[in-house]
Design a protein around this nucleic acid. Sequence first.
DNA 1: AATAATGTAATAGGTAAAGTTACACAAGCT
DNA 2: AGCTTGTGTAACTTTACCTATTACATTATT
Lengths: 144, 144
Amino acid sequence: MRQDTRLSRLLHVLLHMAQTEAPMTSQQIAVMLGSNAVVVRRIMAGLRDGGYVDAERGHGGGWRITKRTDEITVLDVYRSLDEPDLFAFGFSKPSPACLVEQSVNATIKGAIETAKDAILDKFSTLRLSQIEADVRRRMDSVAR
Amino acid sequence: MRQDTRLSRLLHVLLHMAQTEAPMTSQQIAVMLGSNAVVVRRIMAGLRDGGYVDAERGHGGGWRITKRTDEITVLDVYRSLDEPDLFAFGFSKPSPACLVEQSVNATIKGAIETAKDAILDKFSTLRLSQIEADVRRRMDSVAR
DNA sequence: AATAATGTAATAGGTAAAGTTACACAAGCT
DNA sequence: AGCTTGTGTAACTTTACCTATTACATTATT
């Protein structure tokens, strides 16, 4: 299955927005992501609705981050995408008549639920500010 | 066709094969899965190569399980599918020049690796015999 | 009024599993 | 030997979803 890259793209954009005062246009962001301005507006819409960014129209407009990086977690960003499926595997029938299939589904579902809780818990502890700190570490080691 | 359903389908089939002596034809299995005989052969090929099942051609032929259900784990079945991606999300570029994107990728990758280890560890503890036991419990509660 | 932005609907493209068709090969039955 | 019943696979089509593109309305600045 082809993978959903929206989460990593949003994180990438937010961190760049946090490094500058001036609003960034969808077009600038699109170039940065190797993507398209319309695609950018689409994936940013959730962040806007969640109050994490702000979009100004017209001349001199663009996107701006409205919270500090230590106030935004990866979980927040994931939720702003409407919580798309995390897993690439699942069952073929939601509620089968076959008892064997029911057991298989319950088994798979259990594994998925456990893993999902673990990932979302991890996401909730990861703040943008931590990724920022990691970027600074990388910059230091490049400069050295 | 959002998710990969091969793992749950294979588990389903293996458990039915464990309940009968006679070989099951791809066509019978296909009906059971609401699928197609060719699709069945395709997903069974890995199990055959792994030695978990055996396919006999010609009259009276079909598929037969060759191990006991306590000798097969969910991990074995997953591996026989060539370990397809477990996660529906990922990065857009494998090795970006941008330091920020590198950090984001590292962050996401870390979360994925941790979760993957946890899931595979869980898979390795789940034996077909345990799912069988769960099926029996369901049968009992239906009969009651 | 012209220009530079976002907002969004409609449509096309790309990818991987699932489904289908076609045919080669193998084994048992009459 | 020939027919039937199976697997093995290649090639193609379908399906679902993210991504990309096109088109146009709306809004704000100059």
